[in-house]
């Protein structure tokens, strides 16, 4: 037996600069080397809140996809869905990191008042803002700002496809506009994210068509899936005050509806499916996901996601 057969194994104990870990998941801060100062004229508080919203959408959505791994109908779908979960997690990491930096800028620039980003209970140093992990693992449900669609559990593969079509068509329309954001960091995140979302939308659309125009059974399930999901659509396009505080930086969701409707109509037609006619899911005393008022599902999602991190807050991971 030759020693050189085991070089890969022996290299374990060696120090290495090789950052070619799986999928570029290196050790660096996702925004390292990028100038994250908030441009003049932009409200740092509002920017932090906006990035947190978009980051939470991706973080919680990715969690639901992660729960599908090892349960998909075919091995090839395992790699496809894992890719989408990884892409969304990557977007979440960058957006949460950006939110934390903006939060820090707000702290540094403020007269000590806690802003709308929920700084009470922060574990960051004054002026530093929280990092991606502090935001992901140590906020309670009412401080999460994702839309309720993101936290929905897919009852079957038809819901996985339908929900992903809705989410990625909406988010792609949004990110396409954010590529022109006056915040250069948000613009860069959106440019990278848009390419990924186009791929996700394409994957979801192909499956909606295959299931809609497949067997009688799959057609029935795909229609039922859309009917269940449709009440969560209107919330995606509701104008929110955070975006309104960021002219030139954020995009008003209401302006995305026409593009979204066009995409959905085309896919549903190819899939021989009917557009559902469901009433939107009501808010709670005028509030929903963007206000931190969620469905009962989010509590269980966070209990699972945050459990190991919260069990040992002094740990280093």
């Amino acid at each position: 037996m030759t020693d050189d057969e085991f070089t890969a194994y022996q290299a374990l104990a060696d120090e290495t600069d090789d950052h070619r870990w799986a999928f570029g998941t290196g050790f660096t801060d996702p925004l390292e080397g990028i100038d994250t100062s908030v441009p003049a004229g932009i409200s740092a508080d509002a920017l932090a809140a906006y990035c947190l919203m978009l980051g939470d959408d991706a973080l919680i959505y990715s969690h639901r996809l992660q729960q599908w791994m090892t349960r998909l109908p075919e091995l090839e779908e395992e790699t496809a869905v894992a890719n989408i979960a990884l892409d969304l997690l990557g977007q979440a990491r960058m957006l949460l990191a950006r939110a934390g930096r903006a939060e820090g800028a707000a702290l540094a620039g403020s007269t000590g008042l806690a802003g709308s980003t929920g700084l009470a209970g922060s574990t960051g140093l004054a002026g530093a803002g929280r990092d991606e992990d502090q935001l992901a693992f140590f906020r309670p449900e009412h401080e999460f700002r994702n839309v309720r669609l993101a936290e929905h559990a897919d009852a079957d593969f038809a819901e996985l496809a339908g929900r992903l079509l809705i989410f990625s068509a909406w988010r792609l329309a949004l990110f396409t506009r954010l590529q022109d954001s006056a915040d250069p960091v948000l613009a860069a995140i959106a440019a990278k994210g848009a390419k990924e979302l186009a791929y996700h939308r394409d994957y979801a659309a192909q499956w909606v068509v295959r299931l809609g125009d497949g067997t009688e059974l799959s057609h029935g399930r795909m229609q039922a899936a859309l009917d269940s999901l449709w009440p969560l659509v209107d919330e995606l396009f509701r104008t929110d005050t955070v975006a309104s505080d960021l002219p030139g930086v954020a995009a008003d969701p209401a302006g995305l509806r026409a593009e979204f409707d066009g995409v959905l109509a085309a896919v549903l037609a190819a899939a021989t499916l009917d557009q559902p006619d469901a009433a939107p899911l009501a808010q709670v005393a005028g509030k929903s996901g963007r206000d931190g008022v969620h469905t009962e599902a989010l509590g269980y999602i966070l209990a699972e996601m945050q459990s190991v991190a919260r069990a040992d807050p002094d740990a280093t991971w």
Binding site: A22, F23, T25
Partner: peptide, 11 residues
């Protein structure tokens, strides 16, 4: 317990 560890494990 961290987003980076999560990404590495998914991959």
């Amino acid at each position: 317990p961290s987003l980076r560890r999560k990404a590495v494990l998914i991959a």
